[in-house]
Amino acid sequence: MTVAAARPPDGPSAEMSAAQAAVLARYDEMAALLVGMDDRPRADPGLTAEAAPALLHEARLLDAGRFEDWLEGWTSDAVLWLPLSARAHPGTDQSLLLDDRRRLAERVDWRREPSAWGQHPPSRTTRVVGSIEAWPAANGLVARSTLLIDEHRHGRHQALAGYQIHELVGDDLHRRTKILVVPALGTGVRNPSFLL
């Protein structure tokens, strides 16, 4: 698997602080998951069968608007990342979002806030999860799946497609990392605040 190198630090404080190195290590880990995905061998059938219910459950919770329940399924060190391209790095490129557990909770609060006009009235979504594959990973598995999201809002409709990478850990297969790649983000989409 190719590991994307973090950008070498530049500017006056060229010696990287330990804190910065820790942040970049997490970012590198995520970038490596993304960049290395296409090089992976054929998936593990048992793990693929194990991953499928977790991915379908997540899609069902999101489509039902059960965001609080969805929030329960993340580890304390979780990251949700929506890059703008499949070649992006969290430390050098803008992302649509990169949420830690704290901002995930804020996001759920925002969705519930009646004055969050961008999601009130809310988007009605239907997710179609397909092509699930999974491989072993430390303390769990890594899964890749394709995703179609059909969205209706204000009498308008858009359909977006992409793929998602999940790092699921522990007995409950909690989400530690989720990366959602939607190529249309690179060309311009309308109010993407329904994407999670």
Binding site: G11, P12, Q94, L96, L98, R107, W110, S115
Partner: peptide, 24 residues
């Protein structure tokens, strides 16, 4: 030319309004 922590912070600050302000 600033310490590289600044740009790392900027990336996350940048997403803040894009996610919780711009949609509105």
């Amino acid at each position: 030319s600033a310490p590289s922590e600044i740009d790392l912070l900027r990336l996350r600050v940048d997403e803040d309004f894009v996610n919780f302000g711009t949609p509105d």
